[in-house]
Design a protein around this nucleic acid. Structure first.
Length: 572
DNA sequence: GCCGTTTTCGGCCCGACTGTTTTCAGTCG
């Protein structure tokens, strides 16, 4: 049973206890445990096996027992009994924004409603607005939320959101009177998908800035616009909120709106134990009731005797303890990257020539670039057979004579066939500097078969890098069924590197796998899988997601300067 | 149910908004 499944059970338990009107702190305990488990950097089965459940924040004796039961048997007696106390589906009403436990129980008790559809019918029939403490407005709001829920999930990949936000920030930055300006929320934490975008600023003339914001060319629709806040819809249906705040509290406000919620809760609990109360407006000393304000976010952390915690780490894992000890890692920066080891050219399905790609890489300050076109099995991508690969190797040798300032490495992205055999023979692969292997076909294999297939590539001494092991696409394609723990351990053992795909639709490995890989000492590389010069810019997404995996520069092979990288390649 | 520089009991993050009330309950992030 996966962490996410276990987390789901405890979240459900919390919902059911809410319906029951249980002790709110008991409910919070289950919610807290669920959130911790959901964001766990390792699979929970791993922790069960190592008897380390107690290390999870918010997991004590009782929940440990319940996790053991869940993982061992796949079900939880306590949960089954709770479920039986309520009409089937009642807790799904809690998914509707605006419907909490009190309302859900009321709806079920008075009207026998236990699903969104039934609720919709009851509202349209005018039954809901007559209930105690519910009026026309509340009923209408709930109906509106039900309709909103039926539309698609509005979270979009960060790769789509960030360029839009960059453009907006660029425009806002140069408006007269704007002083501070920053994104907040999950975008700033660099989550792989984001919901609404939160922007925060301080300005001398809030009203004018808000007005200019609503008049930006990107804006398709203005949802709300006041004196200090506006909410607009831009291309792709993305909602962007701009909030103008008091200058002297910008630090604590930015901290608060960056989240995550779990991080903030843990921070506040800790502060309370030290006699401080945190809010978005500042830090209050509980003895004197005096509040201190912070215009700077780092100062807000320092006041609590904590190191500054980079937004990417604020997920309520170990970051607060580490900041206490002063051992927050110095996270990887985009400038640390010295090369890209996975790009395509017009020899297969890329757009630009080898030379153009190399020059573009040099312009980015890279010292090396590996050309890794597809192998012959990718017929549709015009994959290279033995003859054309030989020609390409010769071409690269030529170019290396002609072009200075960048070293072009020969390579291939060779298909891992359904049986785990590579798509090109060893006598050819051995001639190449970099062999990247990846799965592009037969993605619906059962977990055991897929895992063995990828293991076979990892164990192949000619393979340097295994790319996008889960083959997921954002949004849309679910990851293939593969035992990541087995893959990661094998990669560590065989000294085969795993690729962190910077391509925004992949981001594969994802953050928790990167974290675990680092823990196991797996060699990691960040590659763009660029199919044109422009795609080299994707590197920022790979760096962002690696920062969420707590990576420092030395964790990533392609941060090494050319000479060091080449000698490490020999020993690979 | 969890947890500890107020430690095995007695607390538990904090503020805002909305709508329904007549002083505040419910919900959210």
């Amino acid at each position: 049973m996966k962490s996410s499944d276990v987390a789901k059970v405890f979240q459900d338990v919390a919902d059911l206890l809410e319906l029951k009107g249980e002790n709110p702190f008991k409910i919070r305990a289950y919610q807290k445990a669920a959130r911790s488990i959901e964001h766990l950097p390792v699979e929970i089965e791993q922790l069960v096996a190592e008897k380390r459940l107690g290390e999870i924040p918010g997991v004590g004796e009782a929940i440990t027992k319940k996790i053991d039961e869940l993982v061992a048997t796949g079900r939880l007696e306590y949960y089954e009994k709770l479920k039986a106390e309520f009409p089937e589906g009642l807790s799904t009403l809690l998914d509707i924004p605006g419907v909490g436990p009190k309302t859900a129980v009321l709806l079920s008790g008075e009207l026998g409603v236990s699903s969104a559809d039934e609720l919709e019918a009851a509202i349209t029939g005018g039954k809901v607005a007559r209930l105690y403490r519910i009026g026309d407005k509340t009923a209408e709001n709930i109906l509106h939320q039900i309709h909103a829920m039926r539309r698609e999930d509005r979270r979009i990949p960060i790769g789509e959101a960030l360029p839009i936000v960059d453009e907006i920030l660029l425009r806002l930055k140069y408006l007269p009177g704007v002083r501070n300006l920053s994104p907040a929320g999950s975008l700033r934490r660099f989550r792989e998908t984001v919901g609404d975008i939160d922007l925060m600023a301080t300005a001398d003339n809030a009203k004018d800035v808000i007005r200019s914001f609503t008049l930006l060319p990107q804006v398709k629709e203005v949802r709300a616009s006041g004196t200090a806040r506006a909410s607009v819809i831009v291309a792709g249906g993305l909602q962007v909120d701009l909030r103008i705040v008091e200058h002297d509290a910008f630090g604590s406000l930015l901290q608060y709106f960056t989240g995550s919620q779990q991080h903030n809760i843990l921070l506040r609990e800790r502060a309370r134990r030290k006699g401080l109360s945190l809010s978005e407006y500042g830090i209050t000393n509980l003895d004197t009731q005096e509040m201190e304000k912070f215009d700077d976010e780092a100062a807000f952390y320092h006041r609590q005797d904590l190191q500054f915690i980079p937004p990417e780490l604020r997920e309520g894992q170990q970051e607060i303890e580490r900041a206490e000890q002063g051992t927050i890692p110095e996270l990887l920066e985009i400038a640390d990257i010295k090369g890209d080891l996975h790009v395509h050219t017009n020899w297969s399905d890329g757009r630009d020539s080898i030379e153009d790609m190399a020059l573009a890489a040099r312009d980015r300050g890279y010292q090396y670039l590996a050309i890794t076109d597809h192998s012959r099995g990718r017929g549709i991508a015009h994959g290279l057979d033995a003859d054309r690969l030989e020609q390409q190797i010769a071409e690269i040798e030529n170019l290396n004579q002609r072009i200075s300032g960048i070293r072009i490495l020969s390579g291939i992205e060779v298909d891992i066939r359904a049986d785990g055999i590579l798509d090109l023979p060893p006598e050819l692969l051995i001639k190449l500097d970099v062999v990247v292997a990846s799965v592009h076909s037969a993605m619906n294999q059962p977990q055991e078969k897929m895992t063995r297939r990828i293991l076979r590539a990892i164990e192949n001494p000619l393979v340097d890098v295994v790319a996008h092991p889960t083959c997921r696409l954002l949004p849309g394609r679910e990851p293939v069924s593969v035992d990541m723990e087995v893959i990661l351990q094998a990669a560590a053992k065989n000294k085969t590197a795993l690729e962190i795909s910077a391509m925004p639709s992949r981001l594969d490995l994802k953050d928790i796998h990167i974290y675990r890989a680092r823990e196991l000492g797996v060699k990691l590389v960040i590659n763009t899988d660029a199919h044109s010069k422009r795609h080299l810019e994707f590197m920022r997404f790979g760096v962002g997601i690696s920062r969420r995996g707590w990576c420092e520069a030395h964790d990533i092979m392609n941060t090494r300067p050319l000479d060091e990288f080449l000698s490490s390649l020999e020993a690979w």
